[in-house]
Design a protein around this nucleic acid. Structure first.
Lengths: 143, 143
DNA sequence: TACTATTTTGAGATCATTACAAAATTATAA
DNA sequence: TTATAATTTTGTAATGATCTCAAAATAGTA
């Protein structure tokens, strides 16, 4: 479902880092590439486990760590409850709805964001919190 | 040590919300106002406990929840390890060093950051990850 | 002072994440 | 192909942050 450029790019990052493409790792990577819902470890495990009965949670944790370290996947710290993961490496920001808890992709600001002086910046994260359109309109209805 | 405007502002927010200013709550609030180090629950408990022997961790958790809900304190989600708290309500961003783990206050971007269309945005968070000046220079030295 | 409401406390529960060592799998060399 | 070595997976147990809850302490009020 995802374009092969993206998959190949991820595979390149992994093999370049000397990481074997085991079945489990491919399954987890594919899941992330095909489901742009910013899944958690629990999401990934619950979805893959039926078709990969021997898959363990630890493997999901290990694989995600590897994917993040190799740069193929981003780790999102927007949710205090738990970590979400995102295989979309294009510049974008995230919005978390305080009502339904869902994470949305939103555009990265159009203006250039300058990194702080004197610091060596690897990554700039922009997050929005509030109500998503769906929850905003249903809140209005219910009051 | 902190200016009274800030303290009074926090007190106003709390009393307006009908929250009693117990000794424990005042101690925690004062600690946050006097220590702009983005402390964690553990930091706060460890620093206050010697002088408040009966203080419990649960009270620190409860109080921080109240302070955040009343708007007197910000909860920072920048660190995947645990939650940090910040009593500085002026607009600023944070930088987390991947080497020493410290959180730094850095300027909020000078350009206006537009909120995503269709969403009701309560809060915009900007975080930077990388190396702080201290760790960047010591890494250079050690290589 | 007695009564009521609120707050604090500490023990235990929960839940995400990590540590670890054994079992399984894959790559390599003969 | 087979034996050997290296890597990966797995499940269990540990860790650690955070929450639950009910009893004890405290503060506010009549």
């Amino acid at each position: 479902m995802q374009d092969n450029t993206t998959l190949n790019n991820a595979i390149n990052l992994l093999t370049t880092a000397g990481i074997r493409l085991s079945h489990q790792r491919m399954a987890i990577l594919q899941y992330l590439l095909n489901h742009r819902t910013h899944p958690t470890v629990a999401d990934i495990y619950d979805h893959l486990h039926p078709n990969h009965p021997t898959l363990s949670r630890t493997t999901v944790y290990n694989t995600l760590k590897i994917l993040v370290e190799s740069g193929a996947v981003l780790q999102l710290d927007i949710d205090p409850e738990c970590t979400h993961y995102d295989a979309d490496l294009s510049p974008h920001a995230h919005f978390m709805c305080r009502h339904c808890g869902k994470l949305y992709d939103v555009p990265f600001p159009s203006h250039h964001i300058e990194a702080p002086e004197g610091f060596t910046t690897d990554r700039i994260t922009i997050s929005y919190h509030g109500l998503c359109p769906t929850c905003a309109s249903s809140e209005k209805t219910n009051n």
